[in-house]
């Protein structure tokens, strides 16, 4: 963005100065061309994922239809894998897995981060704050992959071990940011006013303070979404990832045994589709930050 257009935009926003943070952010986001393209791309992936939920396509991902490593053809758009399964269907179905992992982890870890961060911030300096900070420090100091492995062991190979481990570790950044913001917010007059009319403290935290951190939560959720999808790949490679399903991580893990023998279809298509979604989400997240955080550089 050239400095002239920044200036122009700033004046537009200044003119619309009485609007809320959200309407300003929406306005800014609408005019962020890269952000809108990225958002459209994320939506396209979303439709691709929803299609598998409604059974429109790619539900035959586990069916054995062809031979070993069939090349690309009209029947197998992306070729077939070692078992003769259609790589196109597997790639598309993996989009759904990615959204499942990403959404579950993003929503839950954002919720936990918001609650713990807000409570720690509101009671900053007390033992509650100390406890939350200690928990965050502990979770941050356990090597992530070992933690996932440990949770997977403890949950006896349950399909959700990976999700639990990610939620348990990914809330910490959100929690830290929310805590910092809440320490600032609780000095504000609206909090003092709420206290003065005798609202219970928990109500102040949940009804008045947390809604004022939504801009942080939204951005953090998109960041965690991306982190979850990327971690899933590594975890699948380590044998700790998605169970009873297909994901880009599992395709890439399969590919590690295949590329040496010259079978590239699993690798190429899983990589491309995953790169597309992660890239689009990263850009969407950037545009959100631009729109929501006035201090972002």
């Amino acid at each position: 963005m050239s400095s002239a257009s920044v200036a122009a935009e700033n004046t537009t926003i200044a003119v619309r100065g009485r609007d809320s943070l959200w309407s300003k952010a929406f306005y800014k986001f609408r005019h962020d061309r890269m952000g809108m393209v990225a958002f459209a791309l994320v939506m396209a992936y979303g439709v691709m994922a929803l299609g598998t939920v409604f059974g429109w396509w790619a539900n035959d991902w586990s069916e054995i239809r062809g031979g070993r490593f069939d090349p690309i053809s009209a029947d197998f758009w992306f070729g077939s894998n070692v078992n003769g399964q259609d790589i196109f269907a597997r790639t598309v179905f993996s989009t759904r897995t990615a959204f499942e992992v990403g959404l579950v982890v993003a929503i839950l870890s954002t919720l936990i981060g918001a609650v713990l961060g807000a409570v720690a911030g509101y009671y900053s300096g007390s033992w509650i704050d100390e406890l939350v900070l200690w928990l965050k420090g502990v979770l941050d100091s356990i090597p992530f992959y070992l933690f996932v492995a440990a949770v997977a062991f403890a949950m006896q190979g349950s399909a959700y071990g990976m999700h639990v481990a990610m939620v348990a570790t990914f809330w910490t950044t959100t929690g830290r940011l929310v805590r910092g913001e809440v320490i600032k917010l609780k000095q504000f007059e609206f909090v003092e006013a709420a206290r003065a009319i005798g609202l219970p403290e928990l109500k102040i935290v949940f009804r008045h303070i947390i809604p004022n951190t939504f801009h942080i939560l939204l951005v953090q959720a998109t960041i965690v979404f991306v982190a979850a999808i990327k971690s899933e790949v590594i975890l699948s490679f380590l044998g700790l990832g998605v169970k009873n399903g297909v994901s880009w991580g599992r395709m890439l893990a399969e590919a590690t045994y295949e590329v040496g023998a010259g079978h590239f279809n699993n690798f190429i298509w899983a990589s491309l589709f995953m790169f597309g979604l992660v890239m689009a989400f990263n850009m969407f997240s950037d545009a959100l930050q631009d729109a929501l955080d006035p201090r972002k550089v």
């Binding site: 590690t256 690798f267 992660v278 890239m279 990263n282």
Partner: peptide
């Protein structure tokens, strides 16, 4: 840097090994 952030570590490792260390 956004492109770099969007490529999984595993993909990079597989690709680099293919490009620099294999007969392909």
């Amino acid at each position: 840097s956004v492109v770099g952030m969007s490529i999984s570590f595993l993909i990079v490792v597989i690709a680099f090994q293919l490009i620099f260390c294999s007969s392909y």
